[in-house]
């Protein structure tokens, strides 16, 4: 049986791991290679690196980070941030990424998903979707949460899958960095909307939240703050998940 994935996420800016709340107030959270090694040792199932650099110089650092992380990481590595054209994805794959996530650029030019899937396959093409509640549904937010597009998150995910996205990295803007738990209604609605794997992101404070997200339809759960801050290790978290009846790789 397919096992749920526990995925630490490294938000990387100018070569360092950072973390904020609702995408703002970024503070330093460590060295990406040290964290990647530690998480792999602890039993992480995959790693996500999101480059949140704002400048071309920062983007250059991101390629170095991917290379350095790949050298030590015997796990799948998904990389996103700043991928606008196929050549950006190719550079990241050559540096050691296995999957490429696109967010803002895919909203601006959905054809990018067709191009990535056509070139690298749908298993390599991840749609990163940041969704904010608007009362009776969820809308897509872009540019690290600065812009609300008014676009329906579920409809956009469904379109992305028909264009070739093989996985949805679904972040709740409302929950990101808050520790209030994943947005379970959003996850359940997304599960009904698309047939591809869903990575739940935004709001995890512990194993109970992760078990709930998996129950709601997520195939994988992503977290950053709880790991970086040393609140828990991946190994401890998996032991607690097993105690909650979730079968995990150990």
């Amino acid at each position: 049986m397919l096992l749920p994935r526990i995925i630490p996420c490294l938000d990387v800016k100018d070569g360092r791991v950072v973390k904020g709340v609702r995408f703002q107030g970024l503070r330093d959270a460590g060295d990406p290679v040290e964290l990647a090694s530690a998480y792999a040792e602890q039993g992480a199932d995959e790693l996500v690196i999101l480059d949140v650099s704002a400048t071309p110089e920062g983007r250059g650092h991101a390629l170095d980070v991917v290379r350095a992380v790949r050298a030590v990481l015997p796990l799948p590595l998904t990389v996103g941030g700043g991928v606008r054209v196929v050549a950006d994805a190719e550079a990241l794959l050559s540096a050691g990424a296995d999957k490429i996530a696109t967010n803002t650029a895919a909203v601006a030019r959905p054809q990018l998903l067709d191009e990535l899937a056509g070139r690298f396959g749908c298993q390599c093409t991840v749609l990163a979707l940041d969704a904010a509640s608007n009362g009776n549904g969820w809308q897509v937010v872009v540019r690290s949460g600065r812009d609300r597009t008014g676009r329906d998150a579920l409809a956009w995910a469904a379109e992305a899958v028909t264009r070739g996205a093989g996985e949805i990295l679904l972040t709740s803007w409302d929950r990101d960095g808050t520790g209030a738990g994943y947005d379970l209604e959003l996850l359940a609605a997304m599960r009904r909307a698309v047939p591809v794997p869903i990575i739940a992101s935004g709001g995890a404070a512990g194993p109970k939240h992760m078990a709930e997200a998996l129950q709601a339809g997520a195939d994988a759960v992503l977290a950053a703050t709880i790991f970086h801050d040393g609140h828990t290790t991946v190994a401890d978290l998996k032991a607690e998940l097993a105690g909650l009846g979730v079968e995990v790789r150990r």
Partner: peptide, 10 residues
Amino acid sequence: VRRPQLGWNR
């Protein structure tokens, strides 16, 4: 079943 199969299996 979920397609593609992306993840860990026994």
